[in-house]
Amino acid sequence: MTTAELNWGRLLVAQLEFYWDMHLRPRLNGLTDEEYCWEPVAGCWSVRAATDGRFRIDGPAAQADPPPVTTIAWRMMHIAVGCFAIRSSAFFGDGSVPDDADMFDPRHEPADLPSTAAGGVAFLEDAYRQWHGHISTLGETAMRTPLGPKGAYFSAEPMAALIVHINRETMHHGGEIGVLRDLYRATGATTRDSRLTVSA
């Protein structure tokens, strides 16, 4: 097969599929509530109950400097919401969010996030399935089409560029989740407040 015959869109979707099926999803097996919310150092960002009782992700809209350490819960919800759910809503939505909302509009974000490991895994899996289902149907023309107003300041970028970005973000934060799980086990942590120490 020559380079000209390659289906680049299919390769991008297959890359995400392989990472999800072979790396990220298996690494979530056996995740406990304590591990999901583990704060290995003080000042972590996580998923917490707001004053209205609904759970939301910590952090201001602007990136903190320096960035804080974040929990597995935070990283999972960053992938589920920040990568998959808001993009699915913005570009393939059901009409429940006004059409003038770009992909950074907070109206695309779910009102409540899961506070348990089982809920977090199910939520992430559902968000992945929705995003994957949408991008799997795109042909070459759609992959090359600019994002337009819904892409905000990335409006001139093609859909394929957004998919590349989402893949990169998913693999980046998925790798961090794997490292946190390794540290939780290797340091003998048992609660969400166990601080990083090397077990004897």
Rank of each mutant, 00 (worst) to 15 (best):
P98F: 09
A73W: 00
A152Y: 09
A61H: 13
S199T: 11
A90R: 10
R107N: 12
G93P: 05
T3M: 12
M22R: 15
M77P: 04
V81H: 06
Y19P: 01
R54W: 03
R195H: 09
E35C: 11
A64Y: 06
V198Q: 09
S136E: 09
G188T: 05
T141E: 14
H132N: 14
N7L: 07
A156F: 01
A142P: 03
M1I: 02
L147C: 11
D193C: 04
A186F: 10
G148E: 04
T190R: 14
A189I: 10
Y36I: 03
C37P: 00
P67A: 14
P67E: 07
H165K: 14
P68Y: 12
W45K: 08
T71M: 07
D94M: 02
I163S: 04
W131I: 05
M76G: 07
D102S: 13
A101H: 05
D33C: 08
M76K: 04
M103F: 12
N29T: 15
A160P: 06
L124H: 06
F84Y: 15
I72V: 15
T51W: 07
M159F: 04
M76R: 03
H173F: 00
R129G: 01
A85L: 08
E39Y: 06
L162N: 01
C83D: 09
Y128I: 05
W8D: 02
A156M: 03
G9P: 08
S46Y: 04
R27V: 07
A161T: 08
A64T: 14
I57F: 05
R25S: 07
E169C: 01
D100P: 03
T32V: 05
T145K: 11
